[in-house]
């Protein structure tokens, strides 16, 4: 798969969506819906909810494609993935059906079996991030994962971990700072 060509194709399609081209929205959908649906499904763990959120995500892309600015250097798939994740987490929180997985489960290291890799570029970014997460206290890395994949907030993390809110905040902040430093190495 040619990463640069994919990225250019997606960027161009988003530009056309911003200009009101509905056919371009379908091209964006064809190129990205499996990835974004995977994200919605992972977070919501409910196919019908995930489908509903996915529709909402593409309608949002339709309205907001103009706010994607390729010149800022963020890849279009990152922008879209962040949008899908945010929507799915909003839905999860609204449904109150979340936070039923134990933090211990989440804190477990990910399945070491590599997924069918999307691109070498993504693999490298993932490898670097997991390496940096691995340098944190395991519980702290678990909090980052629980927030990312399961929509935990400071308050729900503190409750789940039985720690004072202020303590949880300082743990997570320190973990984020260490992540940033590690990723910049």
């Amino acid at each position: 798969m040619d990463v640069t060509a994919d990225r250019q194709r997606l960027t161009e399609a988003l530009r056309q969506v911003a200009a009101g081209d509905k056919a371009a929205l379908q091209r964006v959908y064809d190129q990205t819906s499996a990835k974004l649906f995977g994200i919605c499904l992972r977070i919501l763990a409910d196919r019908s909810e995930a489908e509903d959120v996915l529709q909402d995500v593409y309608l949002t892309i339709w309205r907001r494609a103009g706010s994607f600015d390729p010149e800022r250097g963020v890849s279009p798939i990152t922008w879209l993935a962040a949008l899908a994740r945010n929507r799915a987490i909003d839905r999860l929180r609204a449904s109150k059906g979340h936070l039923n997985r134990s933090l211990d489960m989440i804190a477990e290291a990910p399945d070491p079996t590599p997924l069918a890799s999307e691109t070498i570029e993504r693999d490298q970014a993932h490898h670097q991030l997991t390496t940096c997460l691995g340098e944190l206290e395991p519980e702290h890395a678990g909090y980052i994962r629980a927030a990312f994949f399961d929509g935990y907030t400071y308050a729900s993390l503190a409750e789940a971990a039985g720690a004072p809110l202020g303590t949880m905040k300082s743990w997570v902040r320190r973990a984020l700072m260490r992540l940033r430093t590690c990723l910049e190495r």
Binding site: A34, I39, E51, L115, R180
Partner: peptide, 29 residues
Amino acid sequence: WQDRLSALTAEIAAEAPASHVWAGVARRL
């Protein structure tokens, strides 16, 4: 930060949504 953290989404397997999902988007458009 979204860019840094989004590498985690590589752990999520892609899955094609059912065909009625796009039909719903198109209808709502």
